[in-house]
């Protein structure tokens, strides 16, 4: 069960990495790889299916869908990675402190988490996004929605990370203390860094591998409500929800963004599982 096979990332792990590298390359290259600018309109060729000229077809304004997707990769990844990074940072510190210190502080911190947890995610995202959008000063108008969406997503998801981290730390602490007692005692901070962190790093990495996809999904849901990223930017979520409104007649408009999202999630999952396997075999 253990041994050599799990020490490396395995085929799927490397495949996941390869796909992600490809994805980031697309995100960096943007629409320059598809031969059309993502915002060039051609009314005569609107709503065409896939063809040799436009291999993913065109949208209602005659824009090349492949270019829009390539451009959308950039937006989607920025939103997902940025919001996850913020959420992870808050969650790690918060959950770690709460779990490790325990006692009364843990009680208070967890009450706060309970409260945030008891607020419906989607409601929180909408309200915070609206609030930030009208309240953010110093951000150029163009980027205001983008920043508001990132922060709203981060704010709605840090609690989950914090809870997980706390749970892991609690579990690890109990085990480590048993060992520590057996070994004759060690200082607290040493235990935290040397014993507990490695113990929870695996699960955290795995969490990360589905927090980013979760952010991509959450962003697409926000777009579906019509509160997502706004033009000229278009995330995959925006493209997919635009496609939803035409799904009966022009399924390609939802199909290709859907595939893009699915492939990306798959890559993250493969990588995540491979990492998990590699890390768990000590």
């Amino acid at each position: 069960m253990t041994g050599r096979r799990t020490r490396s990332l395995g085929v799927l792990g490397w495949l996941g990495i390869g796909m992600l590298i490809g994805l980031f390359a697309v995100a960096i290259a943007g629409d320059s790889i598809s031969g059309y600018a993502y915002d060039v309109q051609d009314a005569d060729r609107a709503l065409e299916g896939p063809s040799r000229d436009h291999w993913m077809g065109t949208d209602a304004l005659g824009r090349d869908l492949a270019s829009r997707l390539a451009e959308g990769a950039r937006v989607s990844l920025i939103v997902a990675v940025a919001s996850t990074a913020i959420a992870l940072l808050i969650g790690l510190v918060y959950g770690g402190l709460s779990g490790y210190l325990g006692g009364r502080l843990d009680g208070v911190l967890m009450r706060v988490v309970d409260v945030v947890y008891s607020l419906p995610d989607i409601l929180l995202i909408i309200l915070i996004k609206q609030l930030l959008e009208s309240g953010l000063s110093g951000v150029p108008d163009l980027y205001r929605t983008l920043v508001a969406v990132v922060l709203a997503l981060a704010f709605s998801s840090w609690v989950a990370v914090a809870r997980l981290v706390r749970g892991l730390v609690l579990q690890a602490r109990e085990e480590v203390w048993v060992e520590a007692a057996r070994a004759g005692g060690a200082r607290g901070s040493r235990i935290l860094v040397r014993q507990i962190l490695p113990n929870i790093a695996g699960p955290i990495l795995v969490t990360l591998s589905f927090r980013i996809p979760a952010a991509i999904l959450a962003e697409s849901t926000v777009s579906f409500i019509g509160l997502g990223i706004q033009p000229p930017f278009a995330s995959w979520g925006v493209l997919a929800s635009d496609g939803f409104a035409a799904m009966r007649s022009y399924p390609h408009l939802i199909l290709f963004p859907g595939i893009a999202i699915a492939v990306t999630l798959l890559a993250f999952y493969w990588l995540g599982d491979a990492l998990r396997d590699a890390l768990s075999s000590r």
């Binding site: 709503l47 209602a60 409104a245 035409a246 009966r248 007649s249 022009y250």
Partner: peptide, 9 residues
């Protein structure tokens, strides 16, 4: 008819 579906119908 939703706006984008009109053409087909």
């Amino acid at each position: 008819l939703p706006p984008l579906e009109i053409r087909r119908y």
